[in-house]
Amino acid sequence: MKRLLVVLGAVCFVVLLLGAMFDLAPASVQLHAAVAANLPASGVEHPVTAVLLNFRGYDTLLEIAVLLLAMIVILATGIDTAADVRPSVNPVLQALAKLAAPLMIMVAVYLLWAGAFRPGGAFQAGAVLAAAAVLLHLVELLPGWQSPSTRLRLGLAGGFLVFLAVGAGSLMRGALLEYPPEHAGRLILLVESGLTVSLGLILAGLFLLLSRDDGDGP
C-alpha cells in the first residue's frame, strides 16, 4: 500500500515537473556575463574557480566546515577498536603502490596549480591525495586511524583555519573574503594550498576511520 502510494506520488511529481520545465522563458538575470566581466579582478582565470573561491567563496568556506564537521562527528560517534584482520597483501601490489603514490602526489600538485586557469583546483587535488592514502592503506603500508594525534588534527583543521584567517583578515580591512585585486591570485593560491592538504587528509580520514574491518560477523 505504502509502496503503491509512493510510486504513484513519484510518477505524478515527475510528470508535473517535466510539464512545467519545458517552454520556460529565458532567465532575467544572466550571471555568466557578470562572472565574465569581473573575472579579471578575481585573481584567477578559470571562471568556476573564480566563483568557488572568490564570488561565492563564502559558500566554500561553509562547505569545508561541513566536511570537517562530518569528520568530527565520526570521531565523536565512536570508532570500533577491533583489530584489523586482513589477508596478507601481495608484495607486487605493495611495490606498485609505492611507485604510484609519489606520482599521485605530483598529479595533486599539478591539479592545484592548474586550477587557476583550467579545470582543477583544491578539491580535485585533495581527492587525488586522499586516493593515494587509501591506496597505501589497502596495501597495508598505512595503518587505519583510531584517534588522531594533535599533529594530525592540526593537518585536518589547518586548511580550514587558513581559510578562516584569510576571511577574518579581509573582514578587518573591509568585507569578508574581499581580496584586493592585486593580491587576489596569491591569497586564493594560499587558501587552495591549505585546503588541498586538509581536504586530502579529511577525505582520507573519512575512509581510514571507517575501514577498521572486523571480519564478516558483528
Binding site: L31, H32, V35, V48, V51, F55, R56, D59
Partner: peptide, 8 residues
C-alpha cells in the same frame, strides 16, 4: 555555459 551553477 554558466559557471555559477557549476560551482554550486
Amino acid at each position: 555555459a554558466d559557471p555559477v551553477p557549476q560551482a554550486m
